[in-house]
Design a protein around this nucleic acid. Structure first.
Lengths: 194, 194, 194, 194
DNA sequence: CATGAATGAGTCTTCATTCAT
DNA sequence: AATGAATGAAGACTCATTCAT
């Protein structure tokens, strides 16, 4: 059964791809970006890493895509489970904050990888993040608690400040404060914090 | 005469120090951090760079300090020349925005340099930035246009979002939008954009 | 039916062999000698290349043989179509010159492949070339325009200088000059050496 | 004494340069061209080799220059010590032949190094060789034993056939044969071509 | 027979760091 | 103090070769 064997091999290859990606995510996140180290860590030869990701850029970009995907895929659930305001605040303080605190290394790597060819991936990821933010903002607009002209892009940028949280401090409180500041900034009618 | 040549030597040394720092600022900012390259660029031997900055971290930290100092020293002038709200907005959109857009490379270097020993310098720089932000926020509080309980630390974090401006886009407009969002967030009584 | 499919497979195999050889000739000639690259270029898997040519040396040698065969098989035609002197000059300036100019890369590869095991192939190729040269020289001897004791091996070596033609210069003229120099050297009534 | 120390260091550096060049000549000649291997062989760190020869091309070219220089510097002596004809024959069979037989590897390396930037060095070397050949040919012309219109460039190319001598055979005899063939070709009163 | 993913040894290349002068 | 040549560890990258399917 040719089909059987081939798909079996494909499955193996796919598993390698995923494992490398996972290991790389951890490494890059920790500021370590060495193909040799990643290969060893993933238990494969360097050549295999190169086969799957021909370039550092390719690897970094793939990791970035993966992270953004993870970050974004929780949004619909939050919007179903909570009223819009809580959904926004929860996403910011629980998901975004934790993410940005942990993945700082990725930013640096990403910057180095930002060649011309990376443009598409970067643009896609940006748009994905923006879509998520928009969904949250718009739900709040529809609920009448946020200005109709609140700009999701600006809100997203404001949340970018979560990057500077101090993991050794009371970061959750700090995140709540920032989310609150931004919330007030886009709220329908003046300050109204709890 | 001895004094003369000694002080002459001191002047030379000082000049070396400054030139190295200036060159390093440019290099690091551009994502390039090689002692050999910096030395050549500054027109001195590698050994000289090592004499002035015994480790990479020391150099990065020194550059960081210098940048923060530059960034902060304009604040008093702004507060004298403009009403508080304009001072805040101007600092954010003209100084901070331009700075963050340009010096992204420094962030990466800084992160790598953030060992235990660097703590003090980092803490100092953080406090310096915080003082500047506080001065601006408090002037606005005193003018009655900003809530008395607005937290400068949170505001500073919010402005951190300026890091993500796109130098190739309409970044000034984007910066104004973010400054406005944060301003509304800390304003005394609800939204009131111009 | 079995016979049919078997011979069908044989035809496929043969086609593979030829295509690989052709692709390899181009690659090696261009100084590129990578099994993986050749396989991709030929549209087959690496394994297939290995099946046909178990080692690099085997491949290089096979390519060499092929080139020499091509180079030599025009000689009888030239001798039929032209008087002996012209046949010699034409072969040298039109065939040999063009060949040597183009295939320099092969020489390098060949040298690296010259292990003990390669001896036979090399010797065969040498003899083949020598036979061709001999045929041309002897035709001229029979025509009485070349010394009876002219040594084909030495003549062949002299033509080896065509390797250094400059493809970007007036190489045809240069080739004619060299052919002429050698021709004079073997002509029937030149000066006798001491 | 600053001068003393500096020149001392310079001497050391110079010694390194020479040793690397010598080792590289041997390696390349033997078809081996690895910076790491050369460094180890020369007893220096890889970095040192890179400091002296920033590129493979630079190294190969330097070696080539050195070889050509050695080859050429014997010519004036030969012309003083012997009558022109013998000088020519001796250079060809004793110096050129031995050189070309030994240094085949260099040719291959040279070819790979022939980028645009290498042009000057290559042109210089070519001219140097040509000058040497010209000196020999012209001495013979002046002695009246060689045609006045014998072209040194063509003669040089003819001698290029010495590349194919077989070190395991009677190469000296073969070299004499080739030198003789070329000599006859350029001798004063041979047959004129049609 | 053919395929091509995986492997890993071998090179290349850069750069922080030392140290003799 | 300053210099810059030397060092060599570390990481990038290629490619011959194997082998399960």
């Amino acid at each position: 059964m040719t089909t059987g064997s081939v798909s079996h091999r494909r499955a193996d290859t796919r598993r390698n791809h995923d494992r490398i990606l996972a290991v790389a995510a951890e490494s890059i996140t920790a500021g370590e970006l060495s193909f040799n180290a990643i290969a060893k860590q993933a238990g494969v030869g360097v050549g295999t890493v190169y086969r799957h990701f021909p370039t550092q850029d390719a690897l970094v970009l793939a990791v970035y895509e993966r992270e953004v995907r993870h970050l974004v895929e929780v949004v619909p659930g939050l919007l179903e489970a909570h009223p819009p305001e809580l959904a926004f605040r929860t996403w910011a303080t629980d998901h975004l904050a934790r993410y940005m605190m942990t993945k700082r290394g990725l930013g640096a790597a990403l910057q180095a990888a930002s060649t011309a060819a990376a443009g598409d991936v970067l643009a896609d990821a940006y748009r994905t993040m923006l879509d998520a933010t928009s969904a949250l903002v718009e739900a709040n607009v529809r609920a009448g608690v946020v200005r109709a002209d609140a700009d999701p892009e600006t809100v997203m940028r404001g949340l970018g400040g979560l990057l500077y949280l101090d993991p050794d401090g009371d970061w959750h409180r700090d995140a709540e404060n920032l989310a609150d500041l931004i919330w007030r900034g886009m709220a329908a009618d003046g300050p109204r914090s709890p």
